[in-house]
Amino acid sequence: MTVATKERKLTIARAMAEAIAQEMRVDERVFVMGEDIGPLGGVFGNTRGLHEEFGSERVRDTPISETAFMGAAVGAASDGMRPIVELMFVDFFGVCFDAIYNLMAKNTYFSGGEVQVPVVLMTSTGGGYSDAGQHSQCLHATFAHLPGMKVVAPSNAYDAKGLMTAAIRDNNPVIFMFHKALQGMGWLGTEKDAIVHVPEESYEVPIGKAAVVREGNDLTIVGITSGVHHGLKAARQLAERGISAEVIDLRALVPLDRATVIESVRKTGRLIVVDEDYQSYGVSSEIICSVAEQGVPLKAAPQRVAYPDIPIPFTPPMEQWALPNADKIVAAYELMEKHS
């Protein structure tokens, strides 16, 4: 006998807000601050309802002063609070990175572990809607490169809630990257597959554990956030040709679950990495290198489908041409086969 479970589909935005609210209800130390996260509910909807429930002491609109409030998050966390702080667009990190990578990421180390900095920094990533190069970047590698911060980035609402809960409970700084096109805000052209069933009760998705979101035997496609959805679409296209692709959602960049990727590539012998961040010195090269270092036998040279090394252009023909998509993954597979 099967028990029908009622589907409760949420957007990533709703899932994030739910996780935050649930943690705020049980832990007085948790609070949120950032620009427009109060009565407005966040430009990307991820703090909707929080101000109404918790008030302006614990859900604090800040001045447009990222340097000050990122620094303040570090100071508050070191003093026993658990701030969730929003950097509205990841592109804005340039005005406040000192507080992030020199303080948030290093104070624990420089105090020999005596000082804990349990900050969740949530920030929007990604393009595809003609916002040009100061509001469309992903910058996965920029954050993941610098030691001392965990970095997570969900591709769907289930993971978003579980990763947010885990991030808030973590005693280390966690960068929580959410991709605008997956957020469930209609005006950003939502990816429907990101809206999935989310249990009402609180739960954690462990930070640093990748998920095999589609099993296959001929090819491994590794992605994060939007890259996972492109990978799944490409896998469906390839399946029509009888090619069985496995798709891995990294879910976190730090710690990076290399084992899951390596295990998959040992099985398939083929690897394509999809990343909306800039190609050079990025996530895609780290993944390919991690496989190469282990001497995993390969049937073809690995490929990457990433953003070209250019500032993100405004005009739709240019931007859409530059973005990763399923067709590019299929083309990369064809190239692999041609050369193998």
């Binding site: 000050a68 409030f69 620094g71 100071g75 508050a76 507080a99």
Partner: peptide
């Protein structure tokens, strides 16, 4: 300075 503001906020 930012961390001092944050610690004061915490208190």
């Amino acid at each position: 300075m930012g961390p001092a503001v944050g610690a004061a906020l915490s208190r």
